[in-house]
Design a protein around this nucleic acid. Structure first.
Lengths: 100, 100
DNA sequence: TTACTAGTTCGTTATTGATCGAACTTAATA
DNA sequence: TATTAAGTTCGATCAATAACGAACTAGTAA
């Protein structure tokens, strides 16, 4: 079973999250999660026209930047936003993404 | 005399500005400008330990993304934020950058 | 005219990053 | 015990990017 690593948010810089969001695919992922913030999604529930290796890569980038968290449930990896933590560290970021 | 090109803000995407801000140097530049938003700065007034070709490159990236505007005055190029336009298109972006 | 200053452009190098197919792992299920 | 499903990892390719020195341009000043 995969053990995901999640950074402490205090170690995440603004440049880190900007970098993580500097890709249209990853913005799509985050926006999809923002539509139902309470519900965790499996990777391939989010519609993207990319190979699954690429998909895995993008989730990894988002995870490493602290924006999302992933837990394993059976054969799936369920991903959700680290909403409250990120909102505290980067106030207004979620709103910016969902509205712009 | 150099003729700078500035994009229309409506053609700028969130991914574009995230990309432009995905670099510590460029974040420093923008934060410097945010400290005195009314005052335009010449490129080398902003302290950065990089070669001038690199400096020119970073200003170009910020300009192309629509975040800054540049006008020529004598031998200098004066740069300022496109503050109101960007605030309208990406509400909360400036606050996010200055506070996080 | 000459020299200086500010900044751009060019050519190059090195690094990062997006993308994919193929092979792999782990858990659930037939 | 296969088989399937979800996702990761590996290795490769290709594009984009950061960085620099050197040469260049345009304006200002000596």
């Amino acid at each position: 079973m995969k053990k995901y690593r999640h950074p402490e948010i205090k170690n995440v810089t603004l440049a880190d999250v900007m970098q993580a969001l500097a890709d249209p695919c990853r913005i799509k992922i985050v926006r999809h999660l923002l539509n139902e913030p309470e519900r965790p999604f499996a990777c391939n529930e989010i519609p993207l026209r990319i190979a699954k290796a690429t998909r895995s890569h993008h989730f990894d980038v988002l995870r490493t930047s602290g924006l999302i968290q992933t837990r394993v449930e059976g054969t799936k990896s369920l991903t959700s936003l680290r909403q409250a933590e990120i909102e505290k560290r980067f106030p207004g970021l979620w709103k910016l993404i969902s509205r712009s």
